[in-house]
Amino acid sequence: MLEIKNLTKIYDNGFKALDNVSFTIPDGQFVALIGLSGSGKSTLLRCINRLIEPTEGQIIWNGLDLTAISDEDMRLVRRRMGMIFQQFNLVKRSKVITNVLAGRLGYMSPMYSLLNYFPAEDKQDALANLQRVGIGEQAYKRASELSGGQQQRVAIARALMQNPELMLADEPVASLDPATSHGVMKYLEDLNKEDGLSIICSLHFLSLARAYSDRVIALKDGKLEFDGPPELIDNVRFKEIYGEDAVEVGIN
């Protein structure tokens, strides 16, 4: 269970990206995070695994206050939180399999990773995870040779190597075309339904949120604007979240 309590983040330049945000996510929920660009979605996701240090508030995960633990402990906590990104963030010059194996680094003794050594079972896992996201045969190509959708699937395989309980997805389909977007979202849905992972996924398209999520959390100027099932977002709510001039466009 993930509990966010009064989370606030003020950047060094004084910009208040998150303003007193609180909510609770029970295990196994698929949460869509929506809001305009700059509304604090990315900051919120990065505060959860403390890639960004929150200014105030608490993040309590499985009973542990993540804002109070040391950097070294946080590193160990991060192993159970997968994260995927809008720009996929693969190491483009490395092979696909190396990118996937990097998901195991948190579990490895640093001495071995200096020598680029991974146990045979990890390599098997890596290949199995690549199979699972449908690109098993691309394992020994350079990551840069893959298409956008394939790269995002490599990123999912990398996150899966961590054996995560929670998946943070920061605009995972914003750089992809509609057909590929659905492909990637289906893999996330699959992880949620079959493996029981909690997923927090920030999205631009409300139609995607409606199609895949159990619950929608909307941010506006760093404040929590809406929290509830996607069906409840009608035209009025939509205008509250996105502003008066916004018109909903679909992705099908």
Binding site: R78, G82, N89, K92, Q162
Partner: peptide, 24 residues
């Protein structure tokens, strides 16, 4: 980006340098 991604897997500083920085 890759640095952030490798960090988010729970890798330590040295591992991040070896896997995300050096290839670049």
């Amino acid at each position: 980006g890759p640095v952030e991604a490798i960090q988010s897997t729970g890798a330590g500083w040295l591992q991040t340098v070896v896997f995300a920085v050096i290839p670049q």
